[in-house]
Write a protein that binds this DNA or RNA. Structure first.
Lengths: 117, 117
DNA sequence: TTCTTGACCTAGAGTTGCTCAAGGCCGGTA
DNA sequence: TACCGGCCTTGAGCAACTCTAGGTCAAGAA
């Protein structure tokens, strides 16, 4: 499929996909005889994973490392596992942040409410 | 208190506090006779709130509006309440994102595990 | 008293991760 | 044939910091 379809399926924007490819985050993208990118299902699955990792705060550098490992094939799976485990610890931390912020907002809103009465 | 203490109490970095002040996010900061900033408890509470709002994804533009309202005093409380209510909807969305990503990671990790056996 | 150290100051450059604009190619349709 | 939409590359612009250079000043050591 073409880039616009890959974008709407993965969640990433067209520009972002091109940017990610330039940064080495998206291995194995083919080109048609017209010079345009063609994305396989594997490409789209990979982009979707990148979308979620980025959306939840994985830095580019880590994604680059992750992508480099992915490009090297199955022998790097154990290293990739470590990266994802690290990331799920980050998710836990983010969830704590959200909870903390929720509390603060709740307190603040209560003060506002009280004032408004 | 001075900027370094305000930083360690609010969670923001010294540089970030100065940047926020330059952007109009921190009203009412005094200066001592030496020309250096002096932060009151109210200042620190405000910075702490900014820290959590930013940490959980409120854009600068919104924080600027929020700060401008704050600077105008109590008559803007109802508007500020709306901003915080909007933000707590954003928090809910972020939590959904985390859950979604957690699922994806769990699936991926399971595939990795399977491969490693 | 002079020297050094450390916390603060401003202005401005650099970084990250996009996002958009300009200008160009190509295949299909009126 | 003329236009249109979708793709291409390159390079500029932007958000939100983050760091560097160069400077002031107070306090303590030599």
């Amino acid at each position: 499929m073409r880039i616009s379809e890959a974008a709407s399926r993965s969640g990433l924007k067209v520009d972002t996909i091109r940017y990610y490819e330039a940064e080495g985050l998206v291995p194995k993208v083919m080109r048609g005889s017209d010079g345009q990118r063609r994305f396989s299902q594997e490409n789209v699955d990979w982009l979707t994973l990148l979308f979620w990792l980025r959306e939840t705060g994985m830095p580019m550098k880590v994604m680059q490392r992750f992508a480099a490992l992915y490009a090297q094939g199955d022998k790097t799976i154990s290293d990739r596992k470590d990266i994802l485990l690290d990331h799920s610890r980050l998710l836990a931390k983010r969830r704590d942040d959200l909870d903390r912020c929720d509390e603060i907002l709740a307190r603040k809103l209560e003060i506002y409410e009280e004032y408004l009465r």
